[in-house]
Computed example of a mutant assay.
Amino acid sequence: MQFRIQEALTKGKLAPIHETLDFSNLLKGRKDVLSTEPVRVELNVSAEEGIIHVDGRLESELEMACSRCLNAAAVKVDVPFHEQFKQVTVLSPDDEESDEDIIEVVGDVLDLKPYVEDLWLLELPFVPMCTDDCKGLCSECGQNLNERECGCSRGKIDPRLAALKDLFIDDNQ
């Protein structure tokens, strides 16, 4: 996923990038990710007035542990990709005002893989769920409440808030 910046600036447009990348090494040590498929990357590179525009999509499917019941949850990640790059001889200091939407690149070779990896990782769900109405696990016995009810009394009231429970009692009963 590398290309020469000067070639893009000269031609105005490069051939579309179609690649399949394996990001499983990025997920090592994550117990919430059960399995992953390679990420399909489709990007178009164009140049205009010294700015490189990279647009496209990242798509993948993975299996994560449901955050409520711990069963496998199928997750589809479909991310639009849009970045702008500008070739510079020296990176500008952080305190200098610069266009935040344009990433400065030193050198003639631009590798898109780190940008693709970062964006894909940011789009992974923080709280994956197997279904929208997942009931989760019983806090007392650990039974998966999607499979069957367990009969545990889960209506404990925090003693500090017990006085508030009487506020909502209907006097007509």
Rank of each mutant, 00 (worst) to 15 (best):
D32T: 12
D32H: 07
F23D: 03
I5M: 11
L21F: 09
V33A: 03
I52G: 01
E49R: 09
N71I: 00
L26K: 08
V75Y: 05
F23Q: 03
E49N: 09
D32M: 09
R30M: 14
I17W: 02
C69Y: 07
L58Q: 02
L21D: 06
G56C: 11
N44M: 12
S35Y: 02
V41F: 09
G12A: 15
V54P: 02
K31H: 13
E59L: 13
H18T: 12
P38R: 01
E63Q: 12
I17G: 04
E48S: 14
E63T: 14
P16T: 09
N25M: 13
G29W: 08
K76V: 13
D78K: 10
P38I: 02
G56V: 12
I51T: 08
F23S: 03
P16Q: 01
L58F: 05
H18M: 09
V39T: 07
N71L: 02
P38Y: 04
V75C: 13
A72D: 12
V54N: 02
E42D: 15
R57W: 15
L43F: 05
S24D: 03
I51W: 04
K13G: 09
D22F: 09
G12Y: 14
A15L: 14
A15M: 10
T36A: 11
E42A: 13
S67I: 07
L62R: 01
D32A: 11
M64D: 03
K13H: 09
R57C: 11
R57H: 15
T36P: 00
L34A: 10
G56F: 06
V79T: 11
I5S: 11
